[in-house]
Design a protein around this nucleic acid. Structure first.
Length: 262
DNA sequence: ATGGTAGGTCTCCTA
């Protein structure tokens, strides 16, 4: 038996319910992890998810900003949230499957524009957040875990449209890439999508500001699926659903999907 | 070198 898991930065869950329904009807992932809900939990139409078979949900909402959720067709248990910066922002939630697998759903801070923690505190917060993830990864038992989410860092050269031109752009700076790699090493994580698709450009996000995102194709791979060694197989059928970026009124991120043994 | 768009909202902040 296998199960499929999808991660998607939805950029407002309320205005994109139709888009989510279209995605769930066509792809039918067993588990959907969302980030950037931009909504309090009590304003999210969980009944609409339940009608499509996703009757299990664990939400961490917040007014206007952040927010993460897990919707599932298979049983999940709420395993709590980590408040990495101690500021109450809803950026993480964990759930457990009946077989013991734990799913960690993260929304890492974007970090603002200027890649300097002194002049831009938001960048400092982002670095602090990823440092906290590294420290947490080192403490965890490195087994039976899947980590997904919008990590807001594109670590490899082929994860951005131009490695050279993005070296000083937040999301691909060496300090961010080094930190993200230290999280991977600290938790003994495998980057499942890159293990499946090791070569070539791979993006999960295209800016709203590009008038023709498809032709310009100045994307970045910000959304990730990782797993601990015991869950890694030869292939996980990873897919990044680029076409969803072309749907009507899209998120600037597209869903990423992988499959695991249940 | 610059500006471009989107969403939610204490009309500006965040992405």
């Amino acid at each position: 038996m296998r199960f499929s898991i999808a991660t998607w930065n939805i950029n407002s869950v309320r205005i994109r319910m139709e888009l989510i329904a279209r995605f769930l009807r066509s792809e039918r992932p067993d588990i959907l992890c969302l980030q950037e809900l931009k909504s309090p939990a009590d304003k999210i139409a969980c009944s609409a998810f339940a009608e499509m078979g996703y009757d299990q949900s664990v939400l961490r909402g917040q007014k206007a900003y952040n927010g993460v959720a897990v919707f599932s067709r298979i049983p999940i248990t709420d395993m709590g949230s980590k408040d990495m910066l101690g500021n109450g922002s809803a950026r993480h939630v964990a759930v457990q499957l009946d077989n013991g697998i734990i799913i960690e759903n993260f929304y890492v801070p974007a970090g603002g524009y200027e890649p300097d923690p002194v002049t831009n505190p938001k960048f400092g917060e982002k670095l602090d957040y990823v440092r906290a993830m590294r420290d947490w990864s080192r403490q965890e038992q490195p087994t039976r875990k899947i980590l997904v989410g919008d990590l807001n860092i594109a670590p490899q050269e082929d994860d951005v449209w131009s490695h050279r031109q993005l070296l000083n752009v937040v999301s691909h700076t060496p300090v961010e890439v080094d930190l993200l790699n230290s999280v991977i090493e600290g938790g003994n994580w495998t980057d499942i999508v890159r293990a499946d698709i090791p070569h070539g450009k791979l993006y999960s996000w295209w800016s709203y500001r590009s008038p023709d995102w498809d032709a310009a194709d100045k994307g970045r791979r910000l959304d990730h699926i990782w797993a601990t060694p015991d869950l890694v197989r030869d292939h996980h059928c990873s897919r990044i659903l680029r076409s969803v970026r072309g749907w009507e009124r899209p998120s600037d991120h597209v869903p990423v999907i992988a499959e695991f043994d249940l």
